[in-house]
Nucleic acid binder design. Sequence first.
DNA 1: CCGTATCCTGATAGATACTG
DNA 2: CAGTATCTATCAGGATACGG
Lengths: 165, 165
Amino acid sequence: MKFENRLADRGRWRADRCSIASVLEALGTRTTFLVVRECFYGTTRFDDFVDRTGVSAPAVSRAMRMLESAGVVVRVPYQDEGSRVRDGYQLTSAGEDLLPVLLAMIQWGDTYLQEATPPLVFVERNSGRPVKVRVSADGLDDLGPADIEVRRPVPRDLGQQTTRS
Amino acid sequence: MKFENRLADRGRWRADRCSIASVLEALGTRTTFLVVRECFYGTTRFDDFVDRTGVSAPAVSRAMRMLESAGVVVRVPYQDEGSRVRDGYQLTSAGEDLLPVLLAMIQWGDTYLQEATPPLVFVERNSGRPVKVRVSADGLDDLGPADIEVRRPVPRDLGQQTTRS
DNA sequence: CCGTATCCTGATAGATACTG
DNA sequence: CAGTATCTATCAGGATACGG
């Protein structure tokens, strides 16, 4: 039902050593997530982000700067007929790797939060089969918390934590 | 490279219909995520949450109430020798289903944010094989954004959105 | 030890207004 | 249309203090 942990039982476990904290830090806040989501939906233009996220323009502007400096989004100039060059926004490959995060959130939200029909469906392009986020190890898939163990990555001497700050 | 979307191209896409927004709303904030993470690590007692997340007690308290009302965490009374009954905190099954979300975040953070060695390793208990979060459809695995299509789940009349709010 | 109420500060979002 | 600066309101988070 929970991770077998050598972890929770041993001393302090500081948030600053955890990726979750860093991710939340880097991606910042709710609006950043919404913006990234929109990127996945194919949105590239500033005002579209504003419209489709329902977030104010200044907030989008700020989010973009955060995402840019986090290496999640890049500005890609584009040019419409008779307009001057503008910036479009696109996910970097790092940004695209956020797909599991977003999808996992959507999946969870659709399951536990939405009352009515799920607002969107994600399917594999060719087969049309529903896409799912899975936790797996190599061949084995659909692991739950009970199947998973958390380890420290072989600290030099595991005995009494001498080298650890 | 991005979702084929009928979506981004069509009218307004409001944040309030999206699960991401709801999830962010329900789970609230950075500390809630850290608390949930700790739950996965097996932490159950209030002060342990405080210590191991590095978050202040009031913030943990608030987070717990949010998580409780979101159905992610339940209080489970426990009793130590010579102490009175206290509340422990445990993930519900809904809470446990957040595993992919957390793991995906950790994975991304370890890849793109952490400078040194990844702080923690997740392995399958028996085989010791590293656990990964994957996006897949049935047999097909490791899909990327390019393989995925977003659809509306057959709204009654797709033409002009009459029945929609 | 466990947990919450209160108060205060800093971050974040919206409204408005302004530039190209 | 595409952004950003400013200003203000709101909210999350820490310190402190207090009750079980």
